[in-house]
Amino acid sequence: MIRLSVVFVLLLVSNFLFGQTERPFPEIQEMSWGNEFTVEMKLSNDSAHVYDVEELYHSASFSKNNRDELVYYPVGLEKSFIDQLKARKISNSDTTNVEAKSTNKTLWSAIHYSIGGAYVHFINCLLYALETGELRVDAPLMQRPESDWKPKPRTESWKRTRKWNYYVPVRQRYAIREYKKKARNDNLKDLQSVPQHFIDLFLDTRDKDYEELKEKGAVEKLAKIDLIKILLASNYLGETQIKYIKNRVLKAMSRYSVNQLPSVIILDDFNAAVAMSLNEKGYQVQKIVFRDQEQLSEYEMKERKKTIRALIHEINEVNKEVFQKSLKKYYQKG
């Protein structure tokens, strides 16, 4: 009897743990405009949430003729993409896998080999790792050893990085200086597909501003700034730093929270709030609601939704083109 009780308890515990690890991502059950300034959402886990429209990302007009600029939306990752990453089981494979080792030559190749996808996946995964604190630009493995060594002759890279305490320009002063030098030399290839508003935020932030953001806990803004710093320094990173960044990204992805709220983007041209996610193929539409849908007929809503889905499909195609062009430019410039 005691043995049966123990077995029963073990089964309960294992079922509980399994339920914790395999808990499904909550799905959107209902979504609507609460009023002119809010979007309301109910999820399959019985939770209800209200989004402030002013705080949501508003999408600018998209032109099908502009096929040279990446379209970036700050959206969460789809469960299928996370499951795909977990199924790869590659977090430690680079110690023995020759192919994986060879990809650790550049930050892009190391992370791309690990997560797949295109540039939007690269950016989103790096940002998530930075936002969660798994990846830090001032981590011990990113610190440069103290040394009085000077190359003879003094190289350009030594001159530009000699005041850095880390392999990444942690101080805004040095980071902005590096950005301007690379811009003058037309050598911003590692930032060529980064959203412009990330770069604007980075350039508008001084060291004092950066510290204030840290005090406020503005992790999303800090992550965007630190992303720029990492990319600016990517040509100075050694294999140790590249592997550290890659492993931190993979660690963050393995812990990707099912408690993350669905991402909502406001498409002002359509008067619409669109719940979206990102999977291996690109952006995926989950739900669409219109601010003025009470004035729309069923046919009008259907046609407008059809247009939005076609637009997102077109954006995914454009992003693929931009990604391929960026790769060609990257390797042409060396």
Score class of each variant (00 low, 15 high):
S114G: 10
N97L: 07
E99L: 07
C125Q: 09
N124R: 04
S80D: 11
W149V: 07
E55A: 14
K89N: 05
T95L: 02
D83C: 04
T106N: 02
T155C: 07
T103K: 11
L56Y: 10
E146V: 07
E178F: 00
S93I: 10
K89L: 03
P151N: 12
N92E: 00
L107R: 05
P151M: 08
L127C: 06
N104D: 13
D148Q: 08
N65F: 14
D83M: 03
H58S: 09
R136C: 03
P145I: 06
P153D: 13
I176C: 02
D68Y: 13
Y174P: 00
R154Q: 12
S63P: 01
R162D: 08
K79V: 05
A110H: 05
S59T: 09
D148M: 10
A110W: 03
S59G: 06
W149G: 00
V71C: 09
C125H: 01
E78N: 15
D138N: 15
N66S: 15
W164F: 15
L127E: 14
L135K: 03
Y72C: 02
K180C: 13
Q84S: 13
P145D: 09
R173M: 06
S109N: 04
I90L: 11
R173W: 02
E146Q: 08
L56I: 05
W108P: 01
L56N: 09
Y174I: 00
F81G: 00
N65L: 14
N92Q: 02
L56G: 11
A60Y: 07
C125A: 10
P151L: 08
V137I: 15
